[in-house]
Amino acid sequence: MILHHIQTSPNRDNALKLCLRYACKEDAILLSSDGVNALLLRQWAMALSPFKLMVLKDDVIARGLTERLSNVCLIDYNEFVAQALLHDKVITW
């Protein structure tokens, strides 16, 4: 089980695309920083849907996206650390 961490917007960087290319279905994906913007775009939201998904709460609130992203799993920094330990490794793309 890998926790894939995406910090960049899919419009600026291929991190999310590559992560999705190599992720296994049991892996989890964490979006933070501009990475959270991917969920606003239908194509990326669809591509992410098969995976266990987490989004860093402060990055969502800071961007005024709380309502738009009300149905995703928001986690705080402590839960981020807990998730990192729960998984075999974290890959920061």
Partner: peptide, 14 residues
């Protein structure tokens, strides 16, 4: 094969 390799190692740095 790349997915399997990423799974098999201890750490991956990008």
């Amino acid at each position: 094969a790349i997915s399997a390799h990423l799974k098999s190692v201890d750490e991956v740095l990008v």
